[in-house]
Computed example of a mutant assay.
Amino acid sequence: MAKALERSAARLAAVQALYQMEVSGKGIAETLAEFETFWIGGEIEGDTYNTAETTFFRDILNGVLADQGPLDRQIDKTLVQTWPLARVDSVLRAILRAGAYELKKRKDVPARVVIKEYADVAGAFFEREEVGMINAVLDALAHQFRAGEFEAKACHSKEA
């Protein structure tokens, strides 16, 4: 259970770091140093931030940056055509990118876990409509990136 909480904290920190990098223009090295020194497991303005699995945090951040172009194109295809990723709020964009990265590259984490975790992250910042959008887009991406996970479940439930 402790590992799950540390991974949840890593996801939240990764989304915050991606957002910060986008709005401030800070680079990866500076952002990693700042988050690992001050944010993760620290206290800022009276708020205590949970300890996060640092290697997982770094993997998400580095992975999103390394694969951002293809991830953005895949997210764009999944969003409604009249609402491209560039028009989505920057925090929502960070959530979608981190979730898409995990779905595409972190096969060790079940797709349903990824979707739920990032919907929970969205819930920390937004209302129900935005959380529903995150859930729907990540679910569609999960079916694209990991169709096998869903086909296996469908076949298994038909046998029951």
Rank of each mutant, 00 (worst) to 15 (best):
I95R: 03
G41K: 07
T55A: 12
K3G: 15
E53D: 15
E159R: 09
V113K: 12
A29L: 14
V15D: 01
K153S: 12
C155H: 11
D120H: 10
V131R: 02
L61C: 07
R93C: 01
D108Q: 11
H156G: 04
Y118L: 13
K158E: 08
E43T: 12
T55S: 14
R93S: 05
K77T: 01
A52F: 10
A10M: 09
R93K: 13
L141D: 08
H156P: 00
E30Q: 15
D139M: 15
V121L: 04
V113I: 15
V88D: 02
E6D: 13
D72T: 03
F126W: 07
P70D: 00
F38P: 03
A17S: 09
G148A: 09
A52E: 10
A119G: 13
E149W: 09
A66F: 00
I95F: 06
F125C: 01
A9S: 14
M21E: 02
G25I: 06
I60L: 03
L18A: 01
E6T: 14
R58C: 07
L92W: 07
E22L: 04
K107L: 12
E130V: 03
E127L: 08
L85Q: 01
V88F: 02
R106E: 11
T54S: 11
V113G: 09
R73V: 00
A2I: 15
V109G: 07
D120P: 05
A124I: 09
A94I: 04
D139G: 15
A142S: 13
A142K: 12
A29N: 11
V131Q: 04
F145Q: 08
Q16A: 08
E102F: 05
E102V: 04
E102C: 11
G99D: 07
A140D: 10
S24D: 03
T37I: 04
V109I: 14
H156W: 08
A140I: 03
F56E: 13
V113H: 14
M21Y: 01
A152N: 09
D120C: 09
L12S: 10
I115Y: 09
V121T: 09
A13E: 07
T51A: 15
E127A: 08
K3F: 15
A98R: 04
S8C: 07
V64G: 01
A10D: 12
P110C: 06
R58G: 05
G148P: 03
G99A: 03
D59L: 08
I28F: 11
I44R: 12
A9G: 11
A119S: 14
A33W: 12
T78A: 00
G99Q: 04
Q74V: 00
P110L: 06
A14Q: 05
A142I: 04
K153D: 13
A140T: 08
A33G: 13
S90M: 01
S90N: 02
L18E: 03
P84E: 00
E22G: 02
K153Y: 12
